[in-house]
Amino acid sequence: MAIINQETVYGYELSLKLQNYGLKVSEGSIYPVLLRLQKEGLIKGEFKNSPNGPDRKYYFITKQGINALEEFRNNWEKIKVPVDLLLYKEQIP
């Protein structure tokens, strides 16, 4: 969702971008997730002309989606430091 927040993407683009960030997810697994996010109204898909090739379904984030992302970010911030501490305790002098 963070990626969709930055720019509208289509499925294949999204899977490439995730890989560029170092996330080793199987390419196909993004589609069930995209469907779920659409059902929950957090993202929306729309058919648009793509510069190279056929019309594709581009995804963009909704207002609800931005809120959900913000919430997730807050929760993540809250647990990130404690989890890091727990896991790498011995390395901290």
Partner: peptide
């Protein structure tokens, strides 16, 4: 049909 077309596009690209 939308998801089927997306899956097909993805497969063609790949």
């Amino acid at each position: 049909e939308e998801i089927l077309s997306e899956l097909l596009d993805h497969l063609l690209d790949a």
